[in-house]
Design a protein around this nucleic acid. Structure first.
Lengths: 385, 385
DNA sequence: ATGAAAGCGCTAACAA
DNA sequence: TTGTTAGCGCTTTCAT
């Protein structure tokens, strides 16, 4: 039991340790090595108050030297909690989701939780993201960054654990939710383009089947943003008919293709090619055309397409996106956008989930479900100036 | 035990279930409900061959209706494996790392592993990323996407489990590693700019303290890329002295600031501002200046700065980056780059780690450590054409 | 084909 | 302050 000389050698057999190389050091091993009971060792290592300072130090030192690490499975089995929050994210490679993951993870870590992020998977043939329920619930709570999930899917995945959804939660009731400010944000974007002189507007990323009428059930990020844009512009007498919505994927490629199509159409419809610079002069020379992109990614793809086609931004068209991606500030021209305050959102979300976890494990009933909205602000940059 | 009418209601008490709302269904519960022993239920649910087909179906159905989910902690404690691979990533918001995470996760999922991704944390005051060793080792193996980690740090984090590092692994021996092809890739980039007529080159993102001489110990992504560039250009008689390396963070902001400084310097040094268009004419009008950015992110920031300063790309300067970010194709002008084949890399990495996990759990000794390199190819786009 | 017993490594509760 | 007992939920023997 006397303190040995070798400071570093982790697996140094202190007393009668069998020299099994694959042997993982267990609490019992440390107990044997120190001469104390398992309980005392356990208490010492976890800084419980009922161990003398001297012994605590001694135990900790020996445990350290033996390379002891508590077996997480056993601890979890006993404590019925892992201290890990799971974050399910749609796609790491989509910058907006990546940003969410980053700040959620930071926030959760700051609160003493470990974080495990996972992607939802693409289902076999379809492009649809699916959330395969995994066997093995080891997480204390779940944050789902899943734009188009239903409440019952959430409940199925949560399996009784506290859960919180970031996405389109318009018709959620029981499950905590954090929604993007689709409607007001999109409306602001439309107002902005109106103020910047746009009297004709196109929406990029809106498929033809989304409803425009007030009464329709508007669900999903896209439809809600789109509907808000239509409403806001209608207030100014600007109509978004089927010709003024260009469907496309919410990707760079999608935005690029959509804008290229649009540029061709504009050229045909009312363009007067000017010799030399090849730029497009719209028929209404004093009135630039507004381009509302339902996502910054779409907008970035569109900017590129406009550059290729000789459509000048912001002279011929004025472009605004949605999300507030960092890269937008460095685009040429820099991209106007409805920027989400992701860090603020993350703080709220994690605080709420942590509270729910605490409440559940202490048996206290939770207050009503939370339904918040991500703070946003409109950032006007070169693309709409 | 007769099949109930309600198909969905998961928690429907079948027989004498106590109406405890918080009760989680356990194997014993299912055993009691079905009338079989725990073992039979366990075997049935896991499709072990020693259960009659009829009973297996009956058991599965009842378990399903009771909402049974195996307790992962208990399973892990028994089996000594979780089926989860941990991926540690430097920063979700850095696109290159996000891309790694995406493909690693996909690959691991395809192989039947669950995946838990976590970020390394920023240490208190410093900007340094640290890898806090977490208490609680529940993962079967670890993939570390950590550009500047040392082998001993890896071993500390791995704690005996199979581990694999993606990053700068020039002096790794015992730990499996996947390295970026820094030297050949950067050399190719330099060659490319030479071929494109650049007779003077600047390197963006290279701090002054990195060594240039052959003998120095070149470690870390940056130093190795930088050294390779210096070597390659030296072969053509182009020197990279201290004036031709512009230090900056590997971020959009960093690249922007560095390029802005450089643009100002170029203007002063040998620029002849042309009335009207404000573009820069270099003294050697026939020889554009090469800009080697150690990262695509830096390059994107630089492109923006050049646009702001009226430096024409690729007429005045020719720019190339490193990584192959998707956005580079949509930049204005589109960005030349040394593109990494991330999916191929991910496949190799996960295959190797899976093999190591199998080997370790079956007691078989592993062959020697793997040291591979991410495949890459040079993509020439507008910024260097 | 099915069941009983034992124990993975840990910690709450109680006893000393 | 320290030690003993029991058991979290599951699965691997080893009977039956």
């Amino acid at each position: 039991m006397q303190s040995s000389q070798n400071g570093v050698d982790a697996a140094a057999p202190t007393t009668t340790e069998p020299a099994d190389p694959n042997h993982v050091v267990t609490l019992a091993d440390v107990a044997r090595a120190t001469g104390f009971s398992q309980m005392t060792v356990s208490n010492a290592l976890r800084d419980r108050p009922k161990v003398s300072e001297a012994n605590r130090r001694k135990i900790k030192e020996i445990a350290q030297r033996m390379g002891y690490q508590a077996n997480a499975a056993a601890t979890m089995l006993r404590n019925r909690r892992s201290g890990i929050i799971q974050i399910v994210i749609d796609d790491f490679e989509v910058p907006f989701h990546a940003s969410l993951a980053k700040y959620l993870a930071q926030e959760a870590t700051a609160r003493g939780y470990q974080v495990a992020v996972r992607q939802s998977e693409r289902s076999g043939s379809a492009e649809m993201r699916v959330l395969k329920t995994e066997r093995g619930l080891i997480y204390d709570g779940v944050i789902l960054d899943a734009p188009n999930i239903t409440e019952s899917q959430v409940l199925a995945h949560a399996h009784g654990r506290p859960a919180l959804v970031i996405g389109d939660c318009a018709d959620f009731s029981a499950v905590d939710s954090m929604d993007t400010a689709c409607a007001p944000g999109a409306a602001d974007a439309a107002e902005h383009l109106w103020e910047r002189g746009c009297r004709e507007c196109y929406v990029l990323g809106a498929p033809a089947h989304w409803p425009t009428d007030e009464t329709a059930h508007r669900t999903g990020f896209g439809p809600r943003r789109f509907a808000a844009i239509v409403d806001a512009l209608a207030g100014h007498g600007v109509r978004i008919d089927d010709d003024h919505r260009i469907p496309c994927d919410w990707t760079l490629e999608g935005g690029h293709a959509a804008a290229a199509r649009l540029a061709a159409r504009l050229r045909e419809a009312h363009a007067v090619p000017v010799a030399g610079d090849g730029s497009v002069q719209t028929a209404t020379a004093t009135s630039p055309i507004g381009i509302l992109c339902l996502t910054d990614t779409v907008a970035l793809g569109a900017l590129r397409a406009f550059a290729e086609c000789g459509v000048r931004v912001p002279d011929d068209v004025r472009v605004i996106g949605f999300d507030g991606l960092a890269i937008g500030e460095y685009a040429v021209p820099s991209l106007s956008t409805v920027a989400m305050d992701v860090p603020a959102m993350a703080a709220t979300v994690v605080a709420r989930l942590a509270a729910a976890i605490e409440a559940q494990s202490s048996g206290a009933p939770l207050p009503d479900a939370m339904h918040e909205t991500i703070p946003y602000r409109l950032v006007a940059r070169e693309s709409s100036r």
